[in-house]
Design a binder for these strands. Structure first.
Length: 311
DNA sequence: AAGACGAAAGTGGTTGA
DNA sequence: TCAACAACTTTCGTCTT
């Protein structure tokens, strides 16, 4: 047995809690662990605990290892500033004299002040914890949160914070990164967990996207399918049937101009019906942020074009 | 009674002049 | 900047199971 196995990995998930299958897949950009047999999302905010560099031999490991935590976008100074220890001890652990103590006290005070100097830093110091908080709330991995922080920094450099609330800019950065990584988070989800209204959110989102010159592929219905199926507790058969339906819809050019969430919801409605895991239009509407009416219209359209008979 | 259906009116976003 | 337009939502009465 190797050393790694002996130590064991804390809380390592090896089995699906639903069907006990060991056929699991880890999606690191999404921060999700998914069961390939029943489609259940077992872990939503998995954190990538590995090192960010790769090692092919023990010597390389020694060479590449370094002291301190890796630099992070999630601290306003990227975790690179100096800390003055709070204990009044010298390097060998002995207490220091009264006059030195006063001197260190003054140094600590100025160090604290010097860290956050300008409005730029102050803004970051407020925004970055917010990104972590909301990111965790939405089940985003640390990697993705870092990406959000990087986008936010760029937005700040372009002076986009002028006259806008920090909250709105944070929310927009989050939504943008979600779209960049095809994480399938809806506008509503982001809006709800950030206290930023839809209108303000889309406004900021567009501005950042334009100013940073970010081009995105338009959201595709398939981006939402696994998330929706999981929320509805649907098995893998239904999931794959849904994907088939969307694929054929795409061939018949029924996709363009329609909302991807609506299409995903309708395809799921049909697939659930066909695979005997029936869900009502209401149930699907609730989790997909589209109305029953839209699901109805879409699924009627799909059913007639694809010649599908419902039970 | 629950779920599905469809009509009608209203809303917000996109496009093109 | 404004009007036209398609997609979508809300609301509500009716039908089906």
């Amino acid at each position: 047995m190797s050393i790694v196995e002996e130590q064991g990995e804390v809380e390592h998930i090896s089995k699906c809690s639903e069907c006990s299958s060991r056929n699991l897949e880890t999606d690191e950009t999404r921060g999700e662990i998914v069961c390939l047999d029943c489609g259940l999302v077992i872990e939503e905010n998995a954190i990538d605990q590995g090192a960010e560099w790769r090692v092919f031999s023990p010597e390389q490991g020694d060479q590449r290892a370094r002291t301190g935590a890796p630099s992070t976008q999630l601290l306003h100074d990227k975790g690179l500033s100096t800390d003055i220890d709070w204990q009044n001890k010298d390097y060998s652990g002995r207490s220091i004299s009264h006059s030195s103590r006063l001197q260190y006290h003054r140094m600590r005070k100025w160090q604290r002040r010097a860290r956050i100097t300008n409005t730029h830093d102050r803004n970051l110091a407020q925004a970055l914890p917010e990104i972590s908080r909301i990111g965790n709330n939405l089940g985003m991995s640390k990697n993705v949160q870092q990406e959000v922080a990087a986008v936010y920094r760029k937005a700040l450099e372009k002076r986009l914070a002028r006259g806008r609330s920090i909250d709105a800019l944070v929310a927009a950065s989050i939504y943008l990164v979600c779209n960049m990584n095809k994480l399938g988070r809806t506008l509503d989800e982001v809006s709800k967990s950030t206290r930023v209204g839809r209108k303000e959110l889309t406004r900021c989102y567009k501005i950042i996207k334009k100013e940073l010159g970010i081009r995105l592929r338009v959201n595709h219905p398939t981006d939402f399918v696994s998330g929706f199926c999981s929320k509805l507790g649907l098995p893998a058969v239904t999931l794959s049937r849904t994907l088939e339906i969307i694929e054929s819809a795409e061939r018949l050019e029924l996709i363009d101009g329609k909302s991807p969430t609506g299409l995903a919801a309708a395809a799921i409605y049909i697939a659930a019906n066909q695979t005997d895991h029936i869900r009502t239009q209401r149930e699907i509407a609730d989790i997909s942020s589209v109305t029953e009416v839209t699901i109805r219209n879409r699924y009627k359209e799909l059913a007639t074009s694809l010649v599908i008979k419902m039970k």
